[in-house]
Design a protein around this nucleic acid. Structure first.
Lengths: 201, 201
DNA sequence: CAAAGATATTGAACACTGTTCAAAAAAACA
DNA sequence: TGTTTTTTTGAACAGTGTTCAATATCTTTG
């Protein structure tokens, strides 16, 4: 059935069209300020049409949420070529921070929703992929004789906390108390501070 | 003018009444799910009355936001009696994490809004008070010969990032990837992990 | 005490929101 | 061609924050 195939494709294209319109508004205005009517008029369709392709507003949002994590993961995977696991770990941290700087809007979308609300959405394990990528790098470090005094999960959680903390404070503009430096400098030197703590470990 | 004084007091009491109703709903349901009409009916007044005491919804929210930071700061100040600055720093971190565990709802309220939106609201420097309290403890450590290799601001930012990262991941239920431990354990052992990194510094 | 003034409270109204759904339009099939 | 399926529409519903004329309640004045 050729027509059936085309129909499937058309449906995917329409979904993409909606997602493109939604991405523009979500990233520009954030979750609350994005309305179905805004998205619909952005792509010149009526509001009702959106609901033919997506269950509700949050389903559109979750798609973009996944997109953000995929983008982050793909950036981190570019560091896989680095042979030394400890160097790779450091680079992964840097990449994480660079992602948040480049995609502040995505980052805010990625962390405004509680994970609990997604238990039913298996797709949401995408965030776990990023965490596991980090965890494996840390395991490699430990195989290589570094960070051996730490429990892998504990250290992974702590490392991700540092990175998320740095990025979350930046993305929510909570850096006002540190006026001597630009956000850029603060994030970098803050992370370097952490890295130098790892120096001997 | 006795009556004028009473009027002022009555106005304050009404404000508190509104805040009490608002607190209940905000902490229970979060920002979005809290409506002016909900707050009004909680205290048996009409919606319009709220606007006689508060400019808008966000002004009520900001008051509760401040409340959260005051509560956090007061908890940290209880550690001031600790003489050894490094011990004090460690305790402050623990206190921060305990606050988030005890007041998950407050913590979520305290960090959902971008700081930039509050430039006009001088009251919002309350969050800076908590940061400065941390910074002073770190300065004391440095006077005492510890952490001397670090720039004070950099280290403060990094330390707060760790704490905020741990708490933010917990409060948004992003701990699913670490199933071996309860949230409680994960936060504690994650923080201990960081503290042991500080061991030699 | 009664009238005038200030202060506080109300609830209807406005423009918006997410979502549903009968009706209309378009496309596919026979 | 007509019939059936798929897609699109926009009105409708119940909710939102906010405003504001009208009302009610207090306070001061004559």
């Amino acid at each position: 059935m050729n027509i059936a195939n085309r129909k499937i494709q058309e449906k995917q294209e329409m979904s993409k069209k909606i997602l493109n319109g939604a991405r523009k508004i979500f990233l520009e205005k954030g979750y609350d300020q994005t309305s179905i009517r805004n998205i619909a008029s952005e792509i010149n369709y009526s509001p009702g049409t959106i609901y033919f392709y997506f269950k509700d507003k949050s389903e559109i949002f979750y798609e973009l949420h996944r997109e953000g994590f995929r983008l982050l993961l793909s950036k981190m995977e570019k560091n896989d070529s680095e042979q030394d696991p400890f160097e790779r770990l450091k680079k992964n941290g840097q990449t994480y921070i660079e992602f948040a700087k480049e995609h502040k809007d995505y980052y805010n979308l990625m962390f405004i929703v509680e994970e609990s609300k997604k238990e039913d959405r298996s797709e949401f394990n995408i965030s776990k992929d990023a965490i596991n990528h980090m965890k494996h790098t840390i395991e490699d470090c430990q195989k290589n004789g570094r960070l051996k005094q730490f429990d892998t999960d504990d250290f992974t959680f702590m490392m991700i906390s540092v990175l998320h903390g740095i990025c979350a404070l930046f993305c929510k503009d909570r850096t006002n108390s540190f006026l001597n430096k630009t956000d850029e400098e603060l994030m970098n030197s803050g992370y370097n501070c952490f890295v130098s703590l790892l120096g001997g470990a």
